[in-house]
Amino acid sequence: MSVQALQSFFAMGGYAVYVWPAYAVFFIVLIADTCSPIFRRRRLLRELNARVARQSARQGQASDKTSPTQTTP
């Protein structure tokens, strides 16, 4: 493709200011739509792991209290 052909392609017959923003909106909106569940999934898994860790820590404490070695004086 020559430089001239490329230039005329980007000019879109004088309608460049309408055609290219339309395509930009199309891609920006769809990329945002693809990314939002990726971030949500990451956050979700992090929260879930934190909750599991908290639970197991609490269970560990509880079993320590009931264990015979930890009798209160």
Binding site: M12, G13, G14, Y15, Y18, V19, A22, Y23, F26
Partner: peptide, 9 residues
């Protein structure tokens, strides 16, 4: 002219 190319999206 070329404005119709918006049709493809």
């Amino acid at each position: 002219g070329d404005a119709y190319r918006i049709i493809f999206i």
